[in-house]
Amino acid sequence: MLGWLLGIAVAAALLIAAWPQTFGLEQAPIVAQVVSMRMGVVGIAAVLAVVFLLMLGARRLRRFAGAVVVLLLVFMVASSGIHLSRGVDDSTAVAEEGDVVVLTWNTLGDAPGAEAIAGVVQDSGADVVMLPETTIEMGTEVAVLLGAQGNPFFALTTDFANAEYGALNTTMLVSTSMGTYTAQPSVDVGQTNTLPTVIATPDDREGPILVATHPVAPIPQQMRNWREDLAFVASLCTQGQSIIVGGDFNSTLDHWTSLGVGTGDLGTCVDAAGAAGSGAVGTWPTWAPAWLGAQIDHVVASPDWRAVDAQVLTGYDDLGTDHRPVVAVLRQR
C-alpha cells in the first residue's frame, strides 16, 4: 500500500513538472520555477533514474524502483518533447523593406558598455531596441554612437526611485526611420509593479505602439507582483491596437497559458521566437548552454504582425550580462 501511494505521488509530481497547465499551476510557487528550466529538470530526472536503477538490486524495493524508473523515463521524453517542439532553429531571414527588426537585451545595469550595445544594434540591424536595466545615460550614449555611424536613434526611458540601481531602469531606443515616439506617463497607461516598463506611442498615430517591459522575477516575495505584471502586459495586447512588446519577461511560454487570448500567447500577442521555431533556445543564464537555459526574454506582437525570423544571439555571452539578446524580424500582414 505504501509503495502504491508513493508511486501515485511520484506520478503526480512528474505530471505537474511536465505540464502544470493540467491543474492551472503554471504560476504557482515552486512549480513556476521548476517549469522554467525544463531541460535542467530533465537532467535531474535522468540522475534519479540511474539511482533507482541501482536500487533494482534490492529485492524489497525492486517493484517500486522499477515503476519509478518507468515514470521518470516517460517524464523525460514528454518534457523534452514539449521543450523541443518550440524549436531550436538558428537560420537567419533577411529583413525586407517595411519590416521592423526588434532587439531586446537585458544589460544587467549597463554592464556591456555603450560600444558593445551599439555593436549588437548595428550587427542585428535593429529598428527598435528594448533594454531592460539600461539607464537613460547609457541609452543616450549608445544613441550618440549609432548616430555617429549614420544610424540615428533617440532614447526613451522609465525609471523608478533609486534609479542608480540598474534593474530600476528600462530604456528604449527607436530609429528615426520609425518616426517620432513619445513615452506615455504611467498614470495614463499603467505600469508594472516593481521594475519599469516604457510604453511609447507614435506621434503620427500611424505606427505600432512600442513597449519595453520588465516584469519582476518570480522569487518567493514577489510572486503576486510577478503574476500581476504578466497580466498587465497581457492586457496591453488585448486592446485591439497594433503593438510590439519586447523585454525581459522573467517567464516562459508555459507561464502564459492562462493569459493567452484566441491564438495569442500573451493576450492576443504572439511570441516571435515560438512562431519562428526558436522558442526552445535559452536566453538566461549565459553561463549555461543555450539548450539548457530558460527563454525568458521575448519579443511579442499583435496579430497584425508576423514573425518571419527570431533568433537568440549566443555570440555575446562574454559581455558582462547574464542574458542573451533576442532579435526578431516582424512583417506587417
Rank of each mutant, 00 (worst) to 15 (best):
G279C: 03
L236E: 07
A118I: 05
V144Y: 10
L168D: 09
L71V: 00
Q27N: 13
V88D: 01
Q332L: 10
P202I: 03
A276W: 13
T135A: 11
L145A: 10
S251V: 03
L253R: 08
I82E: 00
N250I: 10
W291Y: 12
W305P: 04
G40L: 11
T22M: 01
A212Q: 07
H83G: 00
N250E: 14
L71E: 11
V189H: 12
V326G: 05
Q21N: 01
H298C: 05
L48C: 10
V216F: 02
T140G: 14
V312G: 05
V10C: 02
V261T: 15
W226F: 08
V198T: 13
S258Y: 01
E115K: 14
A167W: 12
F249C: 11
Q222V: 09
L15R: 00
V101A: 06
M55K: 09
A111F: 09
F160L: 15
A200N: 08
S36Q: 15
Y316S: 05
V327G: 01
S124L: 04
T314I: 14
A46P: 06
V34F: 04
A12F: 07
D123F: 01
N169F: 13
V100Y: 01
A126N: 02
Q184G: 03
A148S: 15
R60A: 12
Q222F: 14
V211T: 09
A111V: 08
G3Q: 06
T201W: 02
D188M: 15
V101E: 03
G125D: 01
I219P: 00
V299M: 06
E137Y: 13
G320A: 09
L72M: 07
A111M: 09
P132I: 12
V326S: 11
T321K: 11
A161Q: 14
V51D: 01
I199N: 04
G150L: 04
Q332M: 07
E164R: 13
A67F: 11
L259N: 06
A67L: 11
T197W: 06
N106C: 10
P112L: 10
G109L: 09
V329I: 15
A58W: 13
T252F: 05
V31F: 01
V281C: 03
S91C: 00
A273Q: 13
T201V: 15
P185R: 15
Q27V: 07
L53Q: 06
G125A: 00
I82V: 03
A155K: 06
A49G: 11
G190W: 11
D248I: 09
I244E: 09
G119Y: 06
V312R: 14
L48R: 08
R306K: 15
T268N: 12
H323Y: 14
T197K: 10
A49T: 15
A114V: 08
Q122K: 12
D265S: 10
V42M: 11
F153M: 08
T140L: 10
G282E: 12
V129Y: 02
Y165W: 13
V35Q: 03
E133V: 08
L14A: 04
C269K: 04
